[in-house]
């Protein structure tokens, strides 16, 4: 019923190791919402208390949204936008945009006109 084909790809394995997750954890996630795993995908650090509370609440909400499976929608097209607008383009020309200074105005850390981030490569 639920497939996790990406798990078989080397890139996904690499990601798994990066997140320090075991394969079993993921297969568990295939049958119920593993809050720890999904929070990691969403880049949100949770306290153990939050994990517990969220798990129960999300279980409740997921139980409710299961009702959508009652409907046969095999011949229905999905709606992404209620007022479909496709291929909205403009002329490819340079126009005024946010200045360098304004773009950096709200940065938590900056220097030399750049955002400062933790070291990414050795």
């Amino acid at each position: 019923m639920l497939e996790v084909p990406l798990l078989l790809l080397p890139a996904a394995r690499f990601q798994l190791e990066t997140f320090n997750l075991k394969l079993e954890t993921l297969f568990m996630a295939a049958t119920e919402l593993d809050v720890k795993y999904v929070a990691n995908l969403a880049r949100i650090a949770l306290t153990p208390d939050e994990e517990k509370k969220l798990g129960a609440q999300l279980g409740n909400i997921l139980g409710y949204i299961e009702k959508l499976r009652e409907l046969d929608v095999s011949n229905v097209e999905p709606t992404a936008h209620a007022v479909p607008m496709v291929n909205v383009t403009r002329a490819d020309e340079i126009r005024p945009s946010l200045s360098h200074e304004d773009a950096l105005r709200n940065a938590p850390r900056q220097a030399n006109g750049l955002f400062i981030v933790p070291k990414v490569v050795e």
Binding site: L2, E3, V4, P5, L6, L7, A30, L33, V35, V38, A39, L41, A42, I44, L46, E50, L54, Q57, L58, I61, L62, I65, L68, R69, L71, V73, V76, E77, P78, T79, A80
Partner: peptide, 29 residues
Amino acid sequence: KRRIILGTYVLSSGYHDAYYLQAQKVRTL
């Protein structure tokens, strides 16, 4: 946090069709 985690879950590999695509189809109805 609750909504981001729920949203991440319904879009995650293996669940996208069961939740998100299904919801988009019911949205059409």
